[in-house]
Simulated assay, not measured.
Amino acid sequence: MTGTAVVFAPAPVLTVTVEERAGDPDVHLHAGGQGVWQARMLTGLGGRAVLCGGFGGESGQVVRALLEQEGIEVAAVGGEIRNGVVVQDRREGGRRMVAEATATGPSRHDLDELHNLVLARGMEAGIAVLSGPAPPDRHLVPPDLYRRLAADLTAGGCRVIADLADEWLSAVVEGGAYLLKVSHEELRAGHLAPAGTVPELVAVMHTLHAGGTEAVLVTRAEQPALALVDGCLHEIVTPRMAPADPRGAGDSMTAGIIAGLLRGDHLPDALRLGAGAGALNATRHGLGTGSRQAVERLAAATELRLLDDQGSHHLRMNRRELAAWMTRM
């Protein structure tokens, strides 16, 4: 596989997990967060990931070193940023939170540096995924940064893939994107698809497509995802797996899509690879992990079924109107 994708992860997190081995504590340190899980799976599938984000303080130094040990290139901004830390105890089987330190947010100067860094590397790579900060740190990164990045990357010829929610997704809608990925739970919570029915979801997808987004992907937990590609609606059907931990499956799906695009797949085939990566990750406890061979086999067994949506309707809005409509989320 050739090519590189840029992953924007504004503030990766240091995760410290305490498990048990032979009756003794077994402590694990990992880099975590949405963008990290995407970059990890992309690397595992043979792609090359450049993770652009903020790294600062002792936690930032450790996170950066851990990422580089995994073969993920780091393009960093320091400044006033300090990365968050999560400490969990899993010795009794569940996840008991021991301590959580939120990140210290970037200054206005740091935000400008992040924008310029992602813009330069994204235009060079040709594909960029915009991921969000960890939930406790969301308020530290303003949605307007995502709007500017989406608009400027798109103007520079970069394919922007957004895996976001709430006002951060709305900001990208206004800026413009190649592919928007959103869950049906988020559309329900935002009252854009109150009942979460397929007709409601499809209407939202067509509205986003009519506003300039090339492709729209809606995940539906254990139900088949819906994809709108070239104006045609598809249902993505994967072999049903026994889940071990569903967390991170959506991020693995995003990574699989990017891996497919990097190797030259057309978007439908890239969606199959993404579905395979997401399905496999749900069978594991490690986020953003999985055998490349197993992912390829699941992708080969994944179907894109064409659905009849002649009765669907959508609104015609420009990007700014779309963003205002999406803020209902």
Rank of each mutant, 00 (worst) to 15 (best):
V173P: 04
E20W: 07
V295Q: 03
V18G: 02
A103E: 02
G264M: 03
G211N: 14
I236Y: 08
K181I: 06
H266M: 13
L130D: 01
A177W: 03
R316C: 10
A221D: 12
V86D: 10
I236H: 07
C232I: 13
T238V: 15
S183G: 07
V182D: 06
R272E: 07
A101H: 13
A150V: 04
L192D: 04
L117R: 11
G3A: 07
L267M: 09
E20P: 05
P143W: 05
R148Y: 09
L119F: 08
G93M: 09
P268R: 09
E167P: 09
H139I: 04
H234F: 15
G175D: 08
R328T: 12
L42H: 10
D89V: 05
E100T: 11
V118K: 01
D152Y: 06
A301Q: 15
L51H: 05
G56N: 05
G264N: 07
N281M: 09
H30A: 15
A195Q: 14
M253I: 09
H184A: 12
L267N: 06
T289H: 15
R90Y: 09
L66T: 01
E70Y: 10
L261Q: 01
D308M: 07
G290R: 06
T302H: 10
V295L: 07
S183T: 14
T17Y: 06
M317P: 00
T302M: 10
A39K: 10
P136N: 06
A324W: 12
T302Y: 08
L114S: 00
A195I: 00
P224Y: 11
G211R: 14
P10Q: 02
M1D: 12
S131A: 15
R147I: 09
A300S: 14
A76W: 05
G44T: 08
G175N: 05
H266A: 15
T2Y: 11
M253H: 13
G44M: 00
W37D: 07
A249E: 13
L130C: 02
L267Q: 07
H115P: 03
D245Y: 06
G274R: 06
D166C: 12
E20S: 08
P143S: 12
L42E: 10
C52N: 02
R159Y: 05
A275L: 07
A125G: 02
V172M: 03
S131N: 12
M241K: 11
M1Y: 13
V141M: 11
P142E: 03
V216L: 08
G35M: 01
R263G: 00
G288A: 14
V295M: 06
